[in-house]
Design a protein around this nucleic acid. Sequence first.
DNA 1: CATATTTGACCGCT
DNA 2: AGCGGTCAAATATG
Length: 306
Amino acid sequence: MASIVDGNGGSRLVVTELGHVKELARQLEVHLGGSSPDLCKHLASQISSITERSISLLITTSTLDGPRKRSAATASPLSDASDAPFVKATKRRTTMDKKRHEVRVSSAGDHPADDGHSWRKYGQKEILGAKHPRGYYRCRHRHSQGCAATKQVQRTDEDRTFFDVVYLGDHTCVQRAAGQAAADAQAPEYKDNDNPGTSSFVQSLSSSLTVKTEGPAVQPEQQLQGRDAPAPFCFSTPATASGCLVPERSPFSAPSTSDNWAVFPPFEVAGGDVLFGFEEVMSAIDRADGDGFLDDLDIDVSSFFV
DNA sequence: CATATTTGACCGCT
DNA sequence: AGCGGTCAAATATG
């Protein structure tokens, strides 16, 4: 019953677009150290334009439909089984006023890769009708800083290599987690707690991205064990994010099926302070849920990529 | 020994 | 009443 579900259509579209952005970023990363600065430039500008388009989308959808749009027409129950976009949903705040977003991530190991925050497991439960138990985690700074953020991790039924991760609530902690320290070194002035403020949206994007690649790129296990590891974050490509958009026709969508992954070290673009932090992105998108997304989110697109 | 995880009990919501 | 979420004692790990 508690159907997990959709935020508004605009958010979904944007999520999909962000997937493209991510993929482009992946490519950019691959070429970054390489020999073709022009290609990098090209990629960066594509990223920029998709981003811009996403924002237009948000503008459009948020003015056209109200908060209430169901995406029934676009998302068939069947289609989301294996081809789901990496983000399943943002949900309108429930009675409990915790923000919630659900993410599908992958890992070769037993848990999803580090998402940049430090969590402590406090429970595990068998869930009715699910093949795998759900693990409950809370922010490690709960006591020291009263941070109420929580997450739930559950292996998907269909594919053992995927996990559904549900983030509940915002981090109010000032965290000095791994990837952070690195980021701090380069951008000492921003503070990272995820102040839902929004123009800091971009700047606070700090955790690095890790996307699994077919090859023997990383041993997730290794990343997991060190909490001083650079906080890679792993999630699937929206390869066949059917439903909202038609990724196939995008020149940017990589030749990917959900098998196509790549690894991101902390990702930095020319300006020096642009990084993708998935959680922050989602958090911002979550704000799109319902009304006044734009009031809330004033991103200067040009600041994304210098 | 300190800290993290496991696991059954407990509790509140539907 | 049943389920999902949390607590906390027991246990594991370094």
